[in-house]
């Protein structure tokens, strides 16, 4: 399995490396998009203390959203072509490909986050901690992998679901408490937020409490196991029924 993951990661990187527009996006467009909200919104509505936390929660969220959007695009390409059967035949499933592809995509977008961090710290004079950023993003990667496994399973199960998933990113942003700590969230949303690994990572960034990272890690592990079990079940269903949703 490790060899399969590394192979998928290698060739995922090659596809990104060859796409010049991708590097323009990762190294220029995305950092600008990550920095501008801070300049335009953060300064106006957040206090200095909140501003520092928002700097990192915003970077972490942009990282998550970017990886998810990129993976959704590729998932659509794979599930609507003969690549799906190719990958299933080669690996006996899709877990290796999901981990390899999404993992490599995460690494690529970490480069974007690093550029953003550099821009904010060196270019604009904001106090930044690369270590804190790496911890946040590092903990988010397993959660992203779990989410993408769920999404791929949904796609195999119901087909044509990717646009719906795309729009749920807005919900995830709210539940992840990107722009405010958990205490600011309406009570009705807190139970769902508590189950969101990214929320606990952001809580650490908002409050500095180390135990929240342990909760995030635990939730990530649970999410990974459950998500890949779900995806495995959906792959088995696809192979048994020969269709995604109602189409073959």
């Amino acid at each position: 399995m490790v060899a399969q993951i590394l192979t998928h990661g290698r060739f995922a990187f090659l596809q990104v490396w060859k796409d010049k527009s991708m590097w323009l996006k990762v190294l220029l467009m995305l950092p600008l998009a990550e920095v501008l909200p801070l300049l335009l919104v953060g300064r106006a509505f957040l206090s200095y203390d909140q501003l520092q936390a928002f700097l990192f929660t915003n970077l972490a969220w942009c990282f998550v959203a970017s990886v998810i959007m990129q993976c959704l695009y590729v998932f659509q390409s794979v599930t609507q072509s003969a690549k799906l059967d190719l990958l299933i035949a080669a690996d006996g499933g899709l877990a290796g490909w999901v981990v390899g592809y999404c993992g490599m995509t995460s690494l690529v977008y970490m480069a974007s986050a690093a550029v953003s961090c550099g821009l904010l710290g060196l270019g604009l004079g904001y106090p930044v901690s690369p270590a804190a950023l790496l911890v946040a993003i590092g903990l988010v990667v397993p959660a992203v992998l779990a989410l993408m496994a769920v999404v791929l399973g949904l796609c195999l199960r119901w087909a044509r679901i990717l646009h719906l998933v795309n729009s749920t990113l807005d919900v995830l942003q709210v539940l992840a408490c990107v722009m405010y700590p958990l205490a600011a969230l309406p009570a009705i949303l807190r139970p769902a937020a508590v189950l969101t690994p990214l929320m606990w990572v952001n809580q650490y960034l908002w409050t500095g409490q180390g135990w929240t990272l342990l909760v995030a890690l635990g939730l990530c592990l649970v999410a990974l196991v459950a998500a890949f079990a779900w995806m495995r079940r959906c792959v088995a269903r696809y192979r048994r029924l020969g269709n995604m949703g109602r189409s073959r």
Partner: peptide, 28 residues
């Protein structure tokens, strides 16, 4: 067992050699 369906099995951004190498690695 090799299966050839259509050219959508190829990864467009990869070269022909890389596509073939990809499969070689996946199949150990």
């Amino acid at each position: 067992v090799g299966v050839v369906v259509d050219s959508s099995q190829l990864f467009g951004m990869l070269t022909v050699e890389e596509n073939v190498d990809y499969m070689a690695r996946l199949y150990h």
